[in-house]
């Protein structure tokens, strides 16, 4: 898998690669007993199975030193649940389901995973998009928990742009504000949590760095 320069520094990409894959060693391994927390031996025995993070299993699998199995969340049981009704499943435990899934699909060279990810995302997307534009004064932290990192990005973009549009329409942007200040003068927005304000600032910031980015 080729890694682009952008991904190398991407924190989400790094954290996604922390997800574990069950690996079975095809040979004895010198002084690797420390990988298996249950063992006291110095060497790792052949055919022992350990859950290793993606970033570690990938180079080992590439040289055929280990054989890989699918992680739980990508085995049939969970997959069937996803196919049955993608919208109701909470992704709280699988924050990186899509980013990690893409890596897995490349690793196993399995187009079925890609198809599954695509269908899941497509079915969930419309709901997320709709909610992002209509959940204005509600507490969004609960619904955010159910999304994966990618879905959260979609949601927050929609959510923040609808707020920004509203601000623009009512010419609220005219008032100069203190950096990081919540617009307390707005009665309509008193309900808005600091959380969303932070995110609004974040979005704003993002725009600026795109302009000011020289790397």
């Amino acid at each position: 898998m080729t890694q682009s320069k952008k991904d190398y520094f991407d924190i989400d990409d790094i954290l996604a690669e922390e997800e574990k894959i069950p690996c079975t060693f095809q040979h004895d391994a010198y002084h690797l007993g420390l990988l298996d927390t249950g063992s006291v031996d110095l060497d790792l025995k052949r055919f022992s199975t350990i859950h290793l993070a993606f970033w570690l299993s990938y180079p080992l699998a590439k040289r055929l030193l280990v054989s890989l199995d699918y992680p739980m969340a990508y085995q049939d049981e969970f997959k069937n649940k996803l196919i049955a009704d993608p919208k109701v499943i909470s992704m709280r435990k699988f924050q990186y389901y899509d980013i990690f899934g893409i890596k897995l699909a490349n690793l196993f060279d399995n187009p079925k995973i890609s198809t599954l990810l695509f269908k899941t995302f497509r079915d969930r997307f419309l709901d997320i998009y709709n909610q992002s534009l209509h959940l204005r004064n509600a507490d969004i932290s609960k619904s955010l928990q159910k999304y994966t990192v990618v879905e959260r990005f979609v949601f927050l973009n929609g959510y923040n742009s609808s707020i920004a549009y509203d601000d623009w329409k009512n010419r609220r942007g005219e008032k100069l504000k203190q950096e990081g200040d919540n617009d307390t003068n707005n009665n309509n927005n008193n309900n808005r949590s600091t959380f969303s304000n932070n995110n609004k600032d974040k979005l704003k910031r993002k725009r600026f760095t795109d302009m000011g980015n020289d790397d």
């Binding site: 190398y8 040979h27 010198y30 040289r63 030193l65």
Partner: peptide, 23 residues
Amino acid sequence: PYFLAHTYVFHSSAARNKRCILA
């Protein structure tokens, strides 16, 4: 393979640490 696995694990871990700090 007996030694190769060891090398890969240690090398990848070092590279991983570097990547985290840089990020």
